[in-house]
Nucleic acid binder design. Structure first.
Lengths: 224, 224
DNA sequence: GAGTAACCGGAGTATCAATCTCCGAATCAA
DNA sequence: TTGATTCGGAGATTGATACTCCGGTTACTC
């Protein structure tokens, strides 16, 4: 009922606008640090604002998250497109992966949103929008992978979905890195990338995921 | 108060003994399928027994888990010692890793226990015993790693703790495999192992964990 | 085959955490 | 100044899990 966002009915009162801003900023910080399981109460508190205020501005956590993470997704997509312009196909692929992973290493919330369902404890359904944006990433990624494969520096039996799988695996490394206080995730990303390099080692066992399966994996919610 | 286990005071009555057995079996199955977050209520039900009965035999989930998983840990240790007897150092290492991971792929509970704190949502503290057994695994593993490195088939900058890290990473792959209905985890284990092979690819970035850090990672509980 | 100690079952209690509401008080803007 | 809007945060609501309690049953014993 309370006018929550859009609908250009009326400009916000000054205090309302300020608080909205505060909430968005706090949300960004808290989600980054604690992941999506952070509470709206928590975020409100961190913003120095009452819970009621939080719920007046955003119907729930999901809505706040959507407002916050839209940009980040856009940035990732942009960096994927940019990678396609890089000359060396291997560098293009690896560069993209590295920036993507690095961004998620700094932002637990972003990572959980990207891997929601598979990795995240309590999959959040920020319905539609963000999921669509995430899925849109697979197009440029596929291009990057194919190019690197044709060029011969990426092993022939690699698949685009493997990149997603690598992202999933990074999750644990993020928690580990945080616990330990240094970016150990880089080590294991590197290890995986070395595994992806074309080498005289024989084929990978088991087929890669196809896109449907990846979808399944992404939406596999914790069963009742 | 209720005589819970040991203390050779008196043999259990027949029905009690039967139910205890049923609970252990059910526990094994349920933990394997649903992980350690399964409820004692749930297990009791699956055993076809009342909740009260469950709590009379085991003070809580932890106690049941300890009773169940002791063997599994013992088996892992045995397979590590066995691996040390294998001639080819690379095969020895890889073989051990594969059986370990395979066992955990079939048993979510076991995996959560091995990686508790880092991977598991709600780290269970089965105090002492199991943790000790788990930690004891690192001795033979270190030996396996050193041997494979000396032999030249394992990359020189690999560390024993890397094996643990690989185990952590497998967690997501297990959920993924389950969601998708085929053992995709094998693919990514293989990928990681290929990354571990000695190849002309340059050193890994970032030092490996030392044992203290690994300990930290293992016990890093989800903060309040 | 009767008595009793041990055990069973599961409804019910206790606890905890997260989500969201409500309303008196404070704030803005006309 | 005044009324519409927004604030704040105590607490109602919901849902999950952990564990207890006790009337009734079962299995040993003599």
């Amino acid at each position: 009922m309370t006018s929550t966002a859009d609908s250009p009915t009326r400009p916000l009162r000054r205090d309302a606008a300020r608080n909205r801003r505060l909430l968005l900023d706090a949300g960004r910080e808290v989600f980054a640090a604690r992941g999506l399981e952070a509470t709206l109460d928590e975020i409100a508190h961190h913003a120095g604002v009452g819970v009621g205020t939080a719920y007046r501005h955003f119907a729930n956590k999901q809505e706040l998250a959507a407002a916050i993470f839209a940009d980040d997704f856009e940035q990732l997509a942009a960096s994927a497109r940019a990678a396609l312009e890089v000359d060396d196909p291997w560098q293009a692929l690896v560069g993209f992966i590295e920036t993507t992973v690095a961004k998620q290493a700094d932002d637990r919330g972003l990572h959980e949103l990207m891997t929601a369902g598979t990795m995240a404890e309590q999959p959040i359904h920020v319905d539609g929008k963000l999921e669509t944006m995430r899925d849109a990433l697979f197009e440029p990624v596929t291009a990057l992978v194919e190019r690197a494969k044709k060029n011969g520096c990426l092993r022939a039996d690699a698949a685009p979905t493997d990149i997603a799988a690598i992202l999933f695996m990074m999750g644990v490394n993020f928690t580990m890195s945080e616990a330990v206080g240094r970016p150990v995730w880089k080590r294991y990303l590197w290890l995986l990338l070395d595994g992806l390099r074309a080498t005289p080692c024989g084929k990978l066992p088991v087929e890669a995921l196809d896109f449907d399966e990846l979808q399944t994996a992404l939406t596999a919610a914790k069963k009742h």
